[in-house]
Amino acid sequence: MNIFRFAGDMTHLISILVLLLKIYATKSCSGISRKTQELYALVFLARYVDIFTEFISVYNTIMKIVFIASTLAIVWCMRGHRVVRRSYDKELDTFRHYFLIAASLVLALLVHEKFTFQEILWAFSIYLEAVAILPQLVLLQRSGNVDNLTGQYVFFLGAYRGLYILNWIYRYFTEPHFSRWIACVSGLVQTALYADFFYYYFLSWKNNAKLKLPA
């Protein structure tokens, strides 16, 4: 474990905590795409099927449980909580996310490290994670206004992806047989999706203004 990977995991964790805080404090999920959250839940469930069979470290196992539980809690709040559910921007959250699931599954069946159930689920989760933010970005673009906590949420998620790239560069130079192609190419695609958001986030920060995305 290097500092970039740890910092990446922590920003990932912070992003989820910020989202939970937003929902808990404001009893509202406006500006949050339920589709993106459901895709993330699927990503974690598919990737961590090895949670009881593959032991890497206590850190890994705890983080896996935290990611699965927190994402399921968010989905549950958005679907099941009487007050929170009313603030969901259903008419703005219309991205056809089933296409993303289908495309990721097909790609996982074609490109994987080994043709086994777990490896295909792993590749599927990597591909799906790369594009899972799309419904969220489309929702923000449509609504134009981004509230503070939602902006922080997407910022921390993007930071996590950026730090993971630094982690791979570090591992590439320090580990003899670091196999990484599927994860790294998908990770680059995923990070590139944030570029536009980061540009406007930086502008709003520089001008000390509220974050607004152009229509």
């Binding site: 890497i56 047989h177 790294c184």
Partner: peptide
């Protein structure tokens, strides 16, 4: 996962 694998990441 094999040593130096990206499967040891989250």
């Amino acid at each position: 996962p094999p040593k130096g694998s990206s499967h040891d990441e989250l």
